[in-house]
Simulated scan of single mutants.
Amino acid sequence: MDFNLKKIVKDAGAAVSRVVQLTEEKLGTSGKTELDAHFENLWDRAENTKNFTEKIVKNAEAVLIPNPGNRIEDFIYEKIEKKKPSRLSNLEYLGLDMIEAGSVYGPGTAYGSALIKVGQWEQKLGQNERDFIGSAGMCFTQPMRKFLDTEIKTILKEKSVLETKRLDLDSCKNRVRKARSMLGQPSKDGVTPEFLLEQAERDLRIAQSEFDRQTEITKLLLEGISSAHAQQLRCLHEFVDTQARYYSQCTTIMTELQRELASSAKPGPVLRLNSEDLEPASNDKNASTSPSAFIPISITGDDTNYSVL
């Protein structure tokens, strides 16, 4: 391999200077170049966006896939770029067990028939749930996670570069101040203080130029957060629409199931008096004490005909 020794030495020296500068800042013995208020506001907004987006994505995925083991499994498959495993929902497993139980009890029995019917509709609910999870992932959690993995990572990377440039700039400023304080002193090792000052000022101009350029690059990325918020707003609307459609479909399924069960239910016993059908007495507690709850009956004639008084 072709090693550039000068570059290695220069990079090592720059790294040492940054460490020294950062240490002096912590100790309060060195100044620090501050960014303007507009930049700081942009950075605060970006940090808040990052933190809250991470929380929202995490909680949304927990709602869509409650099983943490399944979430971890899906995450691993995404990282290795393989298709996620197809798994049934809990409702579908419940439906399968109900259908199996109903078949064992006997489809001809009331309970067995009802179990089979409910199991089939639970499977429909489960399939509807899986469709919702897939749709919500595509329109909401996946775009939000992509934003974190691309735009936010780029911003953090450029902000880190900016911090490095800032340390280099402040280190050069300290060198200039030190060189100026040495003016008028005798040369050391054949190097005059004037030459050291000239070299330090040249390095400062270069550091200042690189710092300003990196500040503008980072600021442009931070200003892009507004566009990201607009995109996330659209994702949020799509998520709400998907969620509303899902619950509407669930309501429709359950309403139809109730109707199916009601239509297959057998009617209760009916009291017949004088060729008239009477409903069974009410189960209400007050019915037993109400005079209308008692039906007087008289017995007349030899043929024992009953009539209501």
Results as ranks from 00 to 15, higher is better:
299 I>G: 02
148 L>F: 15
198 E>S: 03
20 V>T: 14
27 L>A: 09
218 T>G: 04
244 A>Q: 15
1 M>N: 06
222 L>D: 03
214 Q>P: 01
300 T>L: 08
300 T>F: 11
210 E>S: 03
264 S>H: 01
54 E>T: 11
26 K>A: 05
274 N>L: 03
100 E>F: 10
283 N>L: 13
106 G>F: 11
116 I>H: 01
125 L>H: 07
146 K>L: 13
301 G>R: 01
268 G>W: 11
112 G>A: 05
101 A>W: 00
109 T>K: 09
159 K>Y: 04
301 G>T: 01
46 A>V: 09
44 D>A: 10
228 A>K: 07
138 M>V: 15
148 L>S: 09
98 M>T: 02
108 G>S: 03
299 I>N: 09
206 I>N: 07
52 F>G: 00
184 G>R: 02
73 E>P: 00
134 G>R: 12
10 K>C: 08
88 L>A: 08
77 Y>I: 04
19 V>M: 13
207 A>I: 04
114 A>R: 07
136 A>I: 04
19 V>R: 10
217 I>A: 02
290 S>L: 12
54 E>W: 07
40 E>G: 05
238 E>P: 00
249 Q>H: 11
205 R>D: 08
283 N>M: 10
81 E>V: 12
262 A>R: 09
87 R>L: 12
84 K>S: 06
135 S>H: 12
98 M>G: 05
189 D>V: 04
61 E>F: 11
